[in-house]
Computed example of a mutant assay.
Amino acid sequence: VTTRTKNLFVELTGTHFKLVNQVLVLLATSLVERGGKLEGVEVVTKKGRVVTPVLEKREMKLSVPKCNSLLGLSLSAREVASLLGRMGYGVREVGKDFVVLNVPPYRTDILHEVDLIEDVAIAYGYENFVPELPNLATIGGELEIERFSSSLRELVIGLGYQEVMLPILSSREKQEKFAAIEGLVTLANPVSKLYDCLRVSLLPGLLGFLALNKHLELPQRIFELGDVVVVDEKEETRTRSVRKLALATCDSDVGYEAIASDVDAILSSLEMRYRLLPCENANFIRGRCAEIRVKNESIGVMGEVNPSLLEDYEIWVPVVMAELDVTKLCEITRT
Rank of each mutant, 00 (worst) to 15 (best):
E33S: 14
R172A: 10
I139V: 15
E217D: 09
E271P: 02
S76V: 03
K46M: 08
E280C: 12
P65N: 14
S269Y: 04
L247W: 01
R240Q: 12
E297A: 11
M165E: 12
V64P: 02
I168W: 01
K328Q: 13
R172I: 12
L27W: 08
S74Y: 05
G300C: 03
S151R: 13
E59P: 01
P307W: 08
T186G: 06
T138A: 09
R147D: 00
V200R: 02
E176S: 14
G125N: 07
I222P: 03
V301E: 02
M165S: 15
E182S: 14
P131Y: 06
M302F: 08
A137D: 12
F98G: 03
L55H: 11
G90D: 10
P105E: 05
L277D: 12
F209C: 05
L155P: 07
I122G: 01
R58L: 10
E33A: 14
S192P: 03
D264F: 04
G35W: 08
P104I: 11
V114S: 11
C250E: 04
N281F: 01
V44K: 14
M272P: 01
N189R: 10
P204A: 08
G88C: 08
K18L: 09
L247Q: 04
L206K: 00
V1L: 00
S82L: 07
T5P: 02
L225T: 04
L155W: 01
A260L: 10
G95Q: 04
R243E: 03
C250S: 10
Y256P: 03
E233C: 10
E142Q: 11
T45C: 03
Y89C: 00
L276Y: 13
V263H: 04
R221P: 06
Y161F: 11
Y256A: 06
K6D: 10
A121R: 09
L310S: 09
A246M: 00
D312A: 12
L71D: 03
S268E: 07
F9S: 15
V294D: 02
V50P: 05
P219S: 10
R293G: 02
C67N: 04
K177D: 07
S171F: 00
L212Q: 15
Y106H: 15
L24M: 13
I259K: 03
V23R: 15
L101Q: 05
V100I: 15
E173S: 13
V326D: 01
F284L: 10
I157K: 12
Q220H: 08
G183H: 04
V326G: 02
V25C: 04
G303H: 02
S30Y: 09
L310Q: 07
E323G: 06
L71N: 05
